[in-house]
Design a protein around this nucleic acid. Structure first.
Lengths: 263, 263
DNA sequence: ATCGATCTCTTTATGGCATAAGGATATCAG
DNA sequence: CTGATATCCTTATGCCATAAAGAGATCGAT
């Protein structure tokens, strides 16, 4: 499920995000028992605990002792609620990186922080990036990356593309781990159990596997990374290694681009 | 919506994928009016035309003049149907690349083909990559990439990570365009209409934008790539540029990794 | 020729979802 | 106290996957 942002009334949505709210004067009607803030908090709690698929208006309402429909007084629709969740959560990301450490160190720290962030809130990976939410914290995040990468001396156009590439990579890498955990939680079958079972079936169904796919067989023959921490499941260890190695590849590539541009 | 694969009976699922099917002898009961193949084809047609969100058992059945429940005679569940769609579609990807052209050219062609493939079948990007389907064509695809990259001389472990990184990147880049088109189709608002409208709202709600986010302001000041083809919308042009530039960065990075390993 | 087994396909729930519509009630300004 | 307005609820609509059960077709065995 890819969740799209900003389907509803754009003006109302932006006002909620940027908190340019109306008067708040005393007005007729019962006192509000809830607020946008507590609803967004409850929704984030639901999504963190049970994933985006379990985020329903009913589930959020239940957590607040209300029905699903009560939320519509505060929030125009689920789409806007997701926007608000997204921008609120983004505020967690650290914003300042020491420019004296150089852009390589800066990008590395930023990527590590983003990785950890996405794994803390895996549902964020399911919020679509096109037609962005355009909330304040999304811009803070962008401001931060660009601030770090500005030191490369790249022009605005090329830098935009480097930033995009970094996002593709970090999101993809984090998504692997997030989906692995989600699959394990949803099915009750860990990767450690799932893979050998499937490998056995594969052997039954394609006994000539090694001859048909020699490259794949060779690729999988390579030693798995040794478990530094036994408690981390196999797939997560591999994904973490891929994240580290891929980031190094990207940084080398950016350096090559910078060198070329500098000449 | 991320769709997970292989939730059902694993043995049945693998048998369907690898076509190690039962007898087919004359058996009692009415002649089957459908087949797994025509169901998978119809499902792919639905997903191609209207996206993963519109892929319902009812929609597929309707296309075949049946009810949703009729499909369950052939396919254990929607999850297995998606597995079959995925592996069938993957067969479209070209498999052979000229080794004499070198791995850089090979990877570039492969990435171009994958990019075009994902844009032809954007719903494929919503099939989860962990707990893979393990169908034959998925392995053909992997065999192909590894065949191209083997020429780098990298060991199996590091090569696995390079392959993973490439996939993250290509999928992410393609997803941007896919989601952009999906958003435009779903809302009836093109990016060309959406962005200026939102930018105006942003100006209302955050009049001090340029001071608050100087880096972002600078980043967006850079010239957009000139439209080589007027018919391609702005965001797609940018995404395409990001794909090309990011791929170049990745290739440079891989080259640096190879050089280091060779020493 | 007929019977029982088996298979295809349908109809009808069940329990989920977002949200439109309408109504009960609380709280304000006047 | 009245009328306006706001909160929150119940109910209904139309989606979704799929469980359950039954109608009818078609076979092998008799």
């Amino acid at each position: 499920m890819v969740v799209f942002a900003g389907q509803g009334d754009a003006r109302r949505s932006m006002a909620l995000l940027w908190r340019t709210e109306g008067p708040g004067d005393a007005r007729p009607g019962p006192k509000p028992g809830l607020s946008v803030d507590v609803i967004v908090d409850a929704a984030i709690a639901v999504a963190d605990a049970e994933g985006m698929a379990a985020l329903s208006m009913r589930a959020v309402g239940e957590r607040l002792g209300r029905t699903a429909m009560a939320l519509y007084t505060y929030v125009p629709s689920k789409s806007e609620l997701v926007d608000l969740m997204y921008d609120r959560t983004l505020a967690e990301l650290p914003a300042g990186y020491d420019p004296r450490a150089g852009w390589r160190a800066g990008v590395t720290s930023w990527a590590e922080n983003a990785w950890a962030f996405y794994l803390r809130h895996p549902w964020v990976l399911q919020v679509s990036q096109v037609r962005p939410v355009l909330g304040p914290n999304e811009y803070v995040m962008l401001e931060t990356v660009v601030g770090v990468l500005r030191a490369t001396g790249l022009e605005a156009g090329p830098l935009r593309r480097v930033v995009g590439t970094l996002f593709y990579f970090v999101r993809g890498a984090a998504q692997t781990v997030a989906e692995s955990r989600q699959a394990a939680a949803a099915t009750g079958v860990s990767d450690e159990q799932w893979w050998p079972a499937r490998a056995a079936l594969l052997g039954e169904v394609a006994p000539d596997f090694a001859e048909r796919f020699p490259m794949v067989a060779w690729l999988e023959s390579g030693p798995a990374s040794p478990p530094e921490d036994e408690s981390v499941p196999y797939l997560e260890r591999e994904a973490r290694k891929t994240f580290e190695a891929g980031l190094a590849v990207l940084l080398d590539g950016i350096e090559a681009t910078v060198d070329r541009a500098g000449t």
